[in-house]
Design a protein around this nucleic acid. Structure first.
Lengths: 344, 344
DNA sequence: ATGAAAGCGCTAACAC
DNA sequence: GTGTTAGCGCTTTCAT
């Protein structure tokens, strides 16, 4: 025998034997059931402590049908936006006694489908998902019974629970802000034509609306698609604009990551931000606040997104909840920083 | 009745009845057990598909003692370093058919203890943890049997599995690099005297060694403690240095987050980086690569950290594994970028 | 207030 | 190659 002692977790039966009561009574004590004689409770509790009893999660889950776990299904956890959101969701989950499980899809349709259809064999009580590759119609095709809450506006109007900010309005406000600082050649970076989730399209719509309202022409060459939403993609898009010799005095990126990449590329190209070029993002991740110059952005209320998402899930998990799918719009605000300051 | 159809997950018994075989045979087919007649297998598989059978995770867990889940216990998922690491760990976990569960401690001792003692009632097969507030001695006091792998060097030499880079060597290399660019007044930002995990102390040791090797004096005023590791703390530390009128020509921060904050504060104070001040970090997170100027840093091999951590865990989960705790040191390298370029 | 026992869905030991 | 069944640890109904 080595020096290690295998500590086997005690179960209800062992505690019951040692305390001279039945499993039923021990279970009552563990669950805080009130109908237990004080003296019995005391004795049982002592044995519970002695043996370091822990309820077995698997047995509870099998018996009760609840695992106490919810899954967060997102493209990538390493992205600052999803990282911050995951943090808030983990906090909210903890408040409710739930545990958060993280599944990455990489924005891949097959994997999104797979996770949607049944995360680890019904091991989770509910899902919070940010779909990229699946269409609203895809999302509705779901035999699995685990409640689902979507992050981001979805076209499946009213058919699925989701929580989002008003992307059209937010993009319009940001674009209007750029126009108010005197910019007229405003590029929009971040369309993802190969994705079906609709968020980028909504931001584009808000952008176009603001241009139209200001009587500015809409130049398709100023709408630059990207492959992914990393900084590298933002930098690449910026280089495309600069390389093509298109005149630009502002760049509205559909995520802070893209904006930070664009900022990097623009600076590397000798442009001064905001004097020569205004750069704005979306998401208000911490990076943007400390960028050089600090990044103007749309700040969604991430804490509210997390809270509302779990409220919706909780509603679905409680049998007498409202059966109507809920579409929740949470607040956002424009965070104006130096990257879009008015040129002298 | 509303429009929703409650689809109840089929179980082995139901599949067996419908296929006219026993549960045993269905189980064999599901588990890919070879000893099944081809014709039987075909028929069973068809029913399996028809009913959309999914093995019940809770039952498997209860029966087999394995949940297929591992927990990642970290201070905060929103931190870029832990976010990137979590991404790699999730990828590695998926390769092994495991699912990753994320638990945040906020660096709080009570919560670290709580999670260490039993994450969700033995619901996980193993833990990967980055302790902040608990001492090596605390970490050893653990009745729970779930295998534990620590991230970061721990003082508990040889008593616990852990995977880390050589922090002393890395900090020494980085400091030496700063000295080679002609800096002589090098501040070290990131000591956390209230934490017990030892990583910061190791980086300080490497820093001091490099100074000593170069014959530079060690000035305690240049070692600035921080409360947490956020950008705001780096900025605050920078302001302390600048406000105190201490002469400084380089700042070595113990994380990229701190460095980005310091960079921000220095720039805001009118200093040019790297001309007036060199700034370097640690971790090589994506933010640093796109900072303005790009940040010199120590790049740990994060993919290797994730891979090795799960290899260690896998070894513990397989009964005939090596009983000796393993201390794994993974590679790192110095990533020199513009933030520490030699002044003209 | 407490005991006895069924049963959640699965795996595997034991039949044949 | 396949059927039967015990039992993982828990909650809860039924009985006392």
């Amino acid at each position: 025998m080595g020096g290690s002692i295998l500590v086997v977790a005690a179960n209800l039966r062992q505690v019951a034997e040692r305390a001279g009561v039945s499993v039923r009574t021990v279970s009552n004590v563990v669950s805080g059931f009130p109908q237990v004689a004080p003296e019995t409770r005391r004795r049982v509790q002592q044995v519970l402590d002695e043996l370091g009893y822990r309820p077995n999660a698997a047995a509870r889950h099998l018996r009760g049908g609840r695992s106490g776990m919810i899954a967060l299904v997102i493209p990538e956890i390493a992205s600052p936006y999803f990282g911050e959101l995951a943090g808030h969701l983990a906090d909210e989950a903890e408040k409710r006694g739930w545990t958060l499980l993280v599944q990455q899809t990489g924005g891949d349709a097959r994997r999104e489908r797979e996770l949607l259809d049944g995360v680890r064999g019904q091991a989770v009580d509910g899902l919070v998902m940010s779909p990229w590759a699946l269409s609203p119609a895809d999302l509705r095709r779901r035999p699995d019974a685990a409640p689902l809450v979507l992050l981001g506006e979805q076209d499946a109007d009213g058919l699925l629970d989701h929580v989002a900010i008003d992307n059209v309005a937010a993009a319009r406000e940001l674009t209007r802000h750029l126009i108010e600082t005197g910019r007229t050649r405003i590029a929009a970076v971040g369309l993802q034509p190969h994705l079906l989730n609709g968020t980028a399209a909504r931001r584009r719509d808000g952008y176009r609306q603001a241009l139209a309202e200001a009587g500015l022409p809409h130049d398709p060459a100023l709408e630059v698609p990207v492959d992914r939403l990393h900084r590298a993609d933002g930098a690449a898009a910026m280089r495309v604009l600069l390389g093509a010799g298109i005149r630009v005095d502002a760049v509205f990126c559909f995520s802070d990551q893209l904006a930070l990449g664009a900022l990097h590329a623009a600076t590397g190209h000798g442009l001064r931000v905001p004097a020569d070029l205004a750069v704005a993002g979306f998401d208000d991740v911490e990076d943007g606040r400390y960028a050089n110059p600090p990044l103007t952005t749309v700040a969604p209320d991430k804490v509210a997104i997390a809270r509302v998402a779990l409220e919706l899930l909780a509603g679905r998990l409680c049998p007498d909840g409202d059966p109507e799918p809920a579409r929740h719009i949470v607040a956002h605000h424009l965070e104006v920083r130096a990257s879009t300051a008015q040129p002298a």
